[in-house]
Amino acid sequence: MNGKNDRETGTNTDLILFVTGDSPRSLRARANLATAVEDIADNRLTVRHIDLLQDTSGVAEYGMFATPALIHVRASGEPTVLYGDLSNGPELERFLANLQSPETA
């Protein structure tokens, strides 16, 4: 992973991961998320990365004071957020599983 924002993953972005450069928590979050997504093997799931050190607009736009933070914006426009370096595997799996249910998608 590099420090650039990943905006090249297409228009069907489901998830946004807010990080702050190469801080240890950010690095861990990227790695943990990549592993989890790979395990799910759902090609409909796309991830966009926003580095707040490079682009602070995400703080105002999404109210992201804490990082790392994984966001999914529901169809209704309501966000659901999982803070942290995503090191708690069961919590991350629960979050990703909820994305696939019709109620929360």
Partner: peptide, 15 residues
């Protein structure tokens, strides 16, 4: 909102 592991406030500090 929930948490999975530790986080920090570097985002708001950057802002």
């Amino acid at each position: 909102a929930a948490a999975s592991g530790g986080f920090d406030l570097d985002g708001v500090l950057a802002m």
